[in-house]
Design a protein around this nucleic acid. Structure first.
Lengths: 202, 202
DNA sequence: GTCTATAAATCGATAGAC
DNA sequence: GTCTATCGATTTATAGAC
């Protein structure tokens, strides 16, 4: 282990700040968490935070990025681990059951997005990311549909938009009403699988 | 016009506060709007606000109630005004096109819900309202389906949950990305109409 | 680049006069 | 019930030492 360079220590503090900010944001929400709390919990001072992030929403944006990286990684791992379409569906179901809404990921993302929607810089970044995520999901759907000979009921981009909106809508509501079940999302996916029946018939 | 009783003037003040709070919340968001701004814009003092609402989130809850009343009234008017199913669908399409996300209703509701999700009192109220809205929508769907001989693809309650989540998800995303189209929601509705084909066949 | 210290402003909420 | 005045806590953000 060589001594860290200046650049490396800086990136380390940045990473630590993002990590603890993520925990606090998830636990108490974006608005209810102050930068002072983040600094203290991470073992730094408030000034340290501001030398790494110009504003609070810049830190928030970094946290969202980290969260989304984790989310994507988790789903990809899950999909890769399952072979058949039914297995993938079941695996995704288990993931959705425990992760959508309850953990607070969706709630945090949506709280941040709606609370900072008037800051043009943030708004643009979120819009950009939304499009990238939608496109990525569309490609994944297209790919999986081809692999399993499924005919999508609509353009992959539309199906992706539909599923994403559904997940967000369910997650948001589940954040304040745990009674809400996410079976609806699974049903939507199952419907996609139903088109499996007549693959290369015509 | 008789002189207003004490109770009436109080309700008038309350109504005025809610109205201007609604405007400010819609324009700038819940978190970004202070009670002082609301009081000043309404022509009252901060103390006047606090003699009508114990906390900020109590005012927020009242605003949400007013907003939702308007929303429901608008949709009902729209549905009553159209006779055939296709007309209703088209009318709802026009409403969705200009109202979902863009106006900020959904964004405000979701911002408030996610920002106050840790205040148990608010959380419970929102959860309660969510269930009432879902049930009402389910009843409306059931009613309309019967009228037009449509077989719903799933229990009305599930379809209602699905559509509601879809609307919320689309509205939220549209709040920071106007490029997003809501055609997906209309497609989902059109799919319901597609089940029109075999009504009393079996 | 991180620290301490603090500015500067604002917030939600309260007290007491009327 | 509404006012003025203000509390007290907290916020984001900055200045300057190291």
């Amino acid at each position: 282990m060589a001594r860290l360079t200046r650049k490396e220590t800086q990136e380390q503090t940045r990473a630590r700040l993002v990590e603890t900010a993520k925990d606090l944001f998830l636990a108490s929400g974006y608005n209810a968490t102050s930068l002072g709390q983040v600094a203290e919990a991470a073992g730094y001072s408030k000034g340290a935070v501001y030398s790494n992030f110009a504003t609070k929403h810049e830190l928030g944006l970094a946290v969202l990025e980290a969260v989304q990286r984790e989310r994507i990684a988790a789903v990809v791992t899950l999909l890769v681990g399952a072979d058949t379409f039914e297995d993938k569906l079941a695996a995704f179901g288990r993931w959705a059951e425990t992760n959508i809404g309850d953990v607070g990921w969706t709630a945090l993302e949506v709280e941040f997005a709606t609370s900072t929607r008037h800051i043009e810089e943030v708004r643009a970044a979120l819009a950009d990311r939304r499009r990238r995520v939608t496109t990525a999901l569309a490609e994944l759907l297209h790919e999986q549909a081809e692999t399993f000979g499924i005919t999508l009921p609509a353009p992959a981009e539309d199906v992706a938009t539909h599923l994403l909106a559904l997940g967000i809508g369910l997650g948001v509501q589940r954040a304040f009403d745990p009674e809400l079940q996410v079976t609806v999302l699974l049903d939507a996916l199952a419907e996609l699988a139903a088109n499996n029946k007549a693959p290369q018939a015509g």
